[in-house]
Computed example of a mutant assay.
Amino acid sequence: MSMTDTIRAKLTEKFSPLQLEVIDESESHYGHSGWREGGETHFRVRIATRNFDGMSRVAQHRAIMAALDDELKAKVHALAIEVLPV
Rank of each mutant, 00 (worst) to 15 (best):
M1G: 07
S2M: 08
S2D: 12
S2C: 06
M3I: 10
D5V: 01
T6H: 01
I7K: 00
R8H: 13
R8L: 08
A9M: 11
A9T: 12
K10W: 12
L11Q: 04
T12L: 14
T12S: 15
T12D: 10
T12M: 13
K14E: 15
F15K: 02
F15I: 06
P17H: 03
L18C: 01
L20F: 01
E21M: 03
I23E: 09
D24P: 10
E25M: 15
E25Y: 15
E25S: 11
S26G: 13
S26F: 15
E27R: 12
E27M: 14
H29W: 15
G31E: 13
G31H: 12
H32M: 14
H32N: 15
S33F: 11
G34Y: 12
R36A: 14
R36F: 14
R36L: 15
E37T: 06
E37H: 07
G38D: 02
G38N: 01
G38A: 06
G39I: 01
E40H: 00
F43H: 06
R44G: 03
R44N: 05
R44L: 15
V45R: 00
R46L: 04
R46D: 02
R46G: 02
I47A: 00
I47L: 07
I47D: 00
I47F: 03
I47C: 05
A48S: 09
A48C: 08
T49S: 13
T49W: 05
T49D: 02
R50D: 10
R50E: 15
N51T: 05
N51K: 10
N51I: 07
N51P: 00
F52M: 03
D53R: 01
G54Q: 09
M55T: 05
M55C: 14
M55H: 10
S56G: 08
S56A: 10
R57T: 09
R57F: 04
R57E: 13
R57N: 10
V58M: 09
A59D: 07
A59V: 02
A59Y: 04
A59T: 05
A59M: 03
Q60A: 08
H61G: 05
H61S: 07
H61I: 12
M65Q: 08
A66H: 05
A66I: 04
A67S: 14
A67D: 09
L68T: 05
D69T: 04
D70Y: 02
D70A: 13
L72R: 00
K75Q: 12
H77T: 03
H77A: 10
A78L: 04
A80V: 03
A80F: 10
I81V: 12
E82D: 08
E82H: 11
L84I: 05
P85T: 09
P85S: 10
